[in-house]
Nucleic acid binder design. Sequence first.
DNA 1: GACAATACCTATAACTGTAAGGTATGTCAA
DNA 2: TTGACATACCTTACAGTTATAGGTATTGTC
Lengths: 111, 111
Amino acid sequence: MKKTNPIFLNGVPELLVLRLLSRREMYGYQIIEEIRAQTRETLSFGEGCIYPYLHYLEAEKLVSSRRREVDGRSRNYYKLTPRGGKRLDELTTEWKRVTTGISSLMGEQYA
Amino acid sequence: MKKTNPIFLNGVPELLVLRLLSRREMYGYQIIEEIRAQTRETLSFGEGCIYPYLHYLEAEKLVSSRRREVDGRSRNYYKLTPRGGKRLDELTTEWKRVTTGISSLMGEQYA
DNA sequence: GACAATACCTATAACTGTAAGGTATGTCAA
DNA sequence: TTGACATACCTTACAGTTATAGGTATTGTC
């Protein structure tokens, strides 16, 4: 029954992963590190979250992957499919709606 | 393994409940309806979410309650405690940090 | 007198992310 | 050259949070 301190955001990993992949091809480990870096540790999704997500996204044909050898390293690179692009648009709209709703409820104090 | 469509936000019910109670005394049913109304159905937390939350918040002394008879109806009115005020401040700050982080990762496209 | 709306409550299921393990390869310093 | 560390991938078990679906009782309305 314990409610933990931080606010967690269900579904946000999917939004962020799709958004990152909409910019360029990336591999899993890189996605994890980039989310940490670009949000200054505010958001930090573990491997146990991101890897299964990528597999799910691929199964749903929202992303596609290919094995590449770069810098003597073997990596799975993912990129957005057209279907994934649509999904990203939907999630982005949804995210805006939600934050707008919360903002209006929070009021001016929440500037 | 099914990821559902809408974005859910863990911890947000607590944030919103505390915020509403920081304005004025309210009862459970009213809180549920007000969240629905003020967000135009965008957010809609069920009774199975809000009532247990209120009990939890009271157990943690973040809110206090009293039974009142109003309009011939018996209701449990809740209001914020000083401790609850602190908690609200923390959660608000946290919420801002998280949304800021997400915004920066989403980029301009997310205006 | 029946039915909807109000007002409260709880148990259970479902979903999501974490924690904690695992494998394998490459790099660099001692 | 070996030992440590970072990279890169993966999975399972668990914990936390919300939804679903039931329940009770009272009040208002047709």
